[in-house]
Amino acid sequence: MAPDAVALRRPFPVGTRGLVLLGLFGAGVWALCALDLGLGQLVPGSGGLLVAQRFFGRALSPAVDWEGAFVPPGAPAFLVDALEAAWTTIVVAAAAMGLSLVLGLGLGFLASTAWWADEPARGRSGWRGLLRRFVAPALYGAVRILIGCMRSVHELLWAVLFLAAIGFNPLTAVLAIAIPFGGTLAKVFGEMVDEAPRDTARAMRAAGAAPLQVYFFGLVPRALPDMTAYAFYRFECAVRSAAIMGFFGIATLGSRIQQSFLATNYGEVWTYLYLTFLLVAVLDLWSGALRRRVVA
């Protein structure tokens, strides 16, 4: 064998990336088998086909007026009603955002390490040292677990829980969204502050600032633009979740989509879908512009 051939010999033909890709392929095959997914099922039955035709046929001609034969007397014009549903969606999302921002900022502080972990060795005695060495880490661990629990239960499952425990109304919808969102915000906010540039913090500490002063005036302001951009992204998600909560009966876009689809008023469904799209698209553009501003 020529020496060149040895030099050119490749390592094992598949690297880590290749293994991951192969694994994904295998997982996909397993999933298709586990779910008995056949391509045949993708072709709707005759009833489904009719629904599909009539539904997608209205994609480009959304309704501008009530479509049902019966319109309850005193009902507002269709578009006014649709805008009302959109407004309710925004209000529920914003209220949930308010609550989860409070939760996120409060728990986010406890879920960050910057205000106790990288303090220098000075002041290791007395109650401050005790606080820093034992109380703060314990609190950090406990809050991390709490955040994990809040986040890992889906907002719709929180909604089901509230529905069972105290009944469902706009307020419980807000709580159902705010709990998992608060957990997510806390996790991300805490990590953003921990990853903020430390130059200011170091300078302040050298000048004799107390740990909390360093945290709130040296670290949080550095992370604030990032946090704003992320909060906007979560607001976008909150709007989607608020729309979904309509499936449980509050007057957001989800309830209208459900009612109109079941009543086979497909044009109305498309109007609601496009309204959801508009709401989300505006927030998406806004948060995109924010992120560009932050990066620049």
Binding site: G48, A52, F55, F247, I257, T276
Partner: peptide, 15 residues
């Protein structure tokens, strides 16, 4: 922009 659950609800009616 359309939530998963809305897509699922609509597709459930069709498929």
């Amino acid at each position: 922009s359309i939530p998963e659950d809305v897509w699922a609800f609509l597709l459930f009616g069709i498929l």
